[in-house]
Amino acid sequence: MNELQQADAVPAKAPPTGRYWLMWLVLLALQLVNLGSSYLPLGAFNVVVNVGISIVKALLVMAVFMHLSSASPVMRLAAGVGFFFLAVLIGLSLGDYMTRP
């Protein structure tokens, strides 16, 4: 009856290692893109690109290395809820700083 047990974080069989190695290469490639892009004169968009790529990398790490891609919805919710309320904290605080006279 427990909704958490439907999809366990670690399957009983060993998953093939291929996707881990692939993910490693993708992450390193993204890091190079991140590094390279920061030398392009994009103005304010440098930080957008930098943080955007970081978000993609973080999602990949969580999905593959932390097994969220095969985890139950409740587990994913637990993983996401902290980021959601961090966004609330930063968003509403910035709302103050951006609208001050």
């Binding site: 392009l40 994009l42 970081s54 973080a58 932390m66």
Partner: peptide, 23 residues
């Protein structure tokens, strides 16, 4: 899980401290 989380934190620290103003 704990180790990967530390990695995720660094993934964000990296652009915020090392990639500011390289252009």
């Amino acid at each position: 899980l704990y180790w990967h989380f530390i990695d995720v934190v660094w993934i964000f620290l990296y652009p915020l401290f090392y990639l500011v103003s390289r252009s």
